[in-house]
């Protein structure tokens, strides 16, 4: 697997976070400013330029035991400061499937 850090340039178009899946159980997690992982998007560290993104990603990738498949994902920041996923894929990762799960129906 090519490390995301091997990408020559990391471009971001707006506020972003680093997300991954927690190693032991696979759930969606976000890199926090405290150099940890949280399943709560509101606790994610926000990066706003390429250098910040690259640094946060490097730190996240180094924690291979904590989480896997780290990458930069876009977010939107609401007027109240609330962090929202920046696209449908991230929305689904953040809030779950858009369908009822059979066992719950």
């Amino acid at each position: 697997m090519t490390s995301p850090l091997e990408q020559k340039k990391i471009k971001i178009a707006g506020p972003s976070v680093v997300t991954a899946n927690r190693t032991w159980d696979g759930i969606v997690v976000y890199r926090t400013a405290a150099k940890g992982w949280s399943p709560d998007l509101s606790e994610a560290a926000i990066v706003r330029n390429s250098d910040e993104a690259k640094a946060l990603l490097a730190e996240a990738v180094a924690d291979d035991v904590g989480a896997v498949g780290a990458y930069i994902a876009p977010v939107q920041i609401g007027e109240d400061g609330r962090i929202e996923p920046g696209n449908l894929r991230e929305q689904i990762r953040s809030t779950g499937v858009t369908i009822g799960q059979p066992a719950q129906v």
Binding site: M1, N21, T23, D25, G26, I27, V28, D64, V68, G69, R89, I92, R93, G96, V97
Partner: peptide, 20 residues
């Protein structure tokens, strides 16, 4: 993970959006 990925795949384990 790089070392483990092929081993898990050989046992039918993928990493998807929400979980394994």
């Amino acid at each position: 993970e790089d070392e483990f990925k092929m081993l898990r795949l050989q046992n039918g384990v993928y990493l998807q959006l929400h979980a394994y």
